[in-house]
């Protein structure tokens, strides 16, 4: 209890004495957290959107003739050999005709005089809605193309390929900004701690002469780093939320936002970001005192 009081008092004194450099550090941390969490938020939302698109995603394999029951089974086996799938559905040319007719609605009369089997039979393959299976969709399609009796394989190829290269790019950006976050926070925290150490050199020397324990000397720095990380990440996230809210209001009702619900981080993610940066800064300052105090 006495220990804690002394430590907290010492930390507050530190913050008061070097507040200008503390402020710069806080700003840097906030900014890094903002940048990282911005990209991370975009990434998460893109992933969500991708998952939603995946719901409607299917590969349509057009066959040259109606498969018999045993042949259907054979196709099923071969498809499953490549990858697990959500669902496989066989559509006869009769069913395809019915579907098409329904889609046409009032314009059904254009079908007048067409043979009922003018549409080829097909297999509809619904891939599992995970990112990894979705990114392999091109190879899946190529594989299906090689099956006997297959005329053509269709899916939103262009679109999906572009989408997933975007997702991959986003992933790289998120990782890079995460690394930037780690670098800047640890560097800046270490830097301010070094400033504090220099400005307090005499005091630290005196503390050692008075018999202060290592914990007594180092804990305030640890606490200082933790506070920096905590305050910095909270500021960064608040700034992001304000920005997020502004975007949502600004583009309310626009087609893009209606299509994909744009959501903020769930609470556990927010807590994880705050905890991670707090820990990062605390350990950064702690380790920099180790070096400088030669403990």
């Amino acid at each position: 209890m006495n220990f804690l009081r002394a430590i907290v008092g010492q930390t507050l004194r530190n913050l008061r004495q070097t507040w200008s450099s503390q402020l710069v550090t806080l700003l840097t941390i906030s900014l890094s957290v903002l940048i990282f969490s911005f990209f991370f938020l975009v990434y998460i939302n893109v992933l969500n959107a991708g998952r939603q698109l995946g719901d409607n995603l299917r590969l349509i394999v057009y066959l040259d003739e109606e498969p018999s029951k045993p042949l259907q089974e054979e196709y099923r086996q071969k498809i499953l050999k490549f990858d697990r799938v959500e669902k496989i559905e066989f559509v006869s040319s009769q069913q395809a005709y019915e579907r098409f007719r329904k889609q046409l609605g009032h314009d059904q009369d254009v079908l007048e005089g067409m043979p009922r089997d003018f549409l080829p039979p097909s297999i509809e393959v619904y891939p599992i809605r995970s990112l990894s299976s979705l990114t392999r969709i091109k190879r899946f399609s190529d594989y299906l193309q090689t099956l006997p009796g297959v005329l053509k394989v269709q899916y939103g190829r262009e679109w999906i390929d572009r989408f997933y290269s975007f997702v991959k790019l986003m992933r790289v950006v998120v990782i890079l900004s995460g690394m930037l976050l780690i670098l800047t926070t640890t560097f800046m925290v270490a830097h301010t701690i070094r400033l504090t150490l220099c400005s307090r050199e005499r005091e630290l020397e005196l503390l050692r002469l008075l018999g202060a324990s290592n914990h007594y000397i180092r804990a305030p720095f640890f606490l200082e780093g933790a506070l920096q990380g905590l305050a910095g990440s909270v500021c960064g996230l608040v700034a992001l939320y304000v920005f997020f809210d502004w975007i949502r209001l600004r583009f309310a009702g626009s087609a893009m936002l209606n299509l994909f619900p744009f959501t903020f981080f769930p609470v556990p993610v927010i807590l994880a970001i705050v905890a991670a940066s707090t820990l990062l800064c605390a350990s950064g300052s702690f380790s920099s005192t180790r070096r400088i105090l030669r403990l």
Binding site: R202, L207, G211
Partner: peptide
């Protein structure tokens, strides 16, 4: 051991920006 020793230095070794009370308290806080 150092906490059991009280030394008044010839050059005082006070912290000029800390208050008198804080300077004295330091020896007890540690």
């Amino acid at each position: 051991l150092r906490r059991r020793i009280g030394m008044a230095y010839q050059d005082f070794k006070l912290l000029p920006r800390h208050t008198v009370a804080e300077n004295i308290a330091l020896a007890m806080e540690v």
